[in-house]
Amino acid sequence: MVRLGRWISGHLVLTAGLAVLTYMFVPIIIVVLMSFNKPPSRALYTFGEPTLANWLKPCEPEGLCSSLITSVQIGLLATVAATALGTLMAFGLVRHRFRGRPVANVVIFLPMASPEVVLGASLLALFVAVGFGGVLGFWTILVAHIMFCLSFVVVTVRARLQGMDSRLEQAAMDLYATESQAFWKVTFPLVFPGILSAALLAFALSFDAVIITNFNSGQTTTFPMYVWGAAQRDIPMQINVVGTAMFALAVAAVLGGEMLRRRRERVQ
């Protein structure tokens, strides 16, 4: 009985875990395959014959590439703003004890805990109430994205700050570094990886935001809004090219970062 139990914990769990991981990649494989697919007819979203045409002409479907550009613009602006605001907040929360901290923690946590549909709906309700209903577009999307990325940045940078040994700063100042020297030469380099991952997360969240954008986009079309619109009519195969390319780029970036980190650790 004990041996059976041990075998189960030894192999069955491992097998199940790896099976679940495989399952997570099934749709990704479909997306990659579909990027090389020529459907039997334009209206059908099924497998036809293999082709390279989608990769050679990614911008062929009208509006796809301009929607990508819009998404990148909004993503970059939202990332810069959310990362700046969020990093400051993380420092304020970790390095200071003040009354109202629990309230601050809850206010930062709540946007992450709210369903996107509520975030989008309430912003739309506000925009309509103040007479902005007609100007929904690029800027209202940006405002919404900064808002919902902000909390994720705070949480990510805060985790990094909390894991940092504050004695390193004290040591720098014992060695006659000024406050700002200690910050820029010791604290900031140590926190930077956290800020970087927060920025990447913010960009990914903004780039992929569907629900909240759907409420506040007006006539402006981001890439998810383009796919959402296309899903109601017929879906161009090129969206799978974008999906595959994004996946490849992001995995390359993450793996590259991981390798850099390992090399740096070895040097240290």
Binding site: F25, P27, I28, V31, F223, P224, V227, G243, M246, F247
Partner: peptide, 16 residues
């Protein structure tokens, strides 16, 4: 990693 492919594109793959 699956997050890196757009949410909608992945969901459309499930449709298939």
């Amino acid at each position: 990693a699956p997050f890196f492919t757009s949410f909608l594109v992945r969901t459309l793959a499930w449709k298939l």
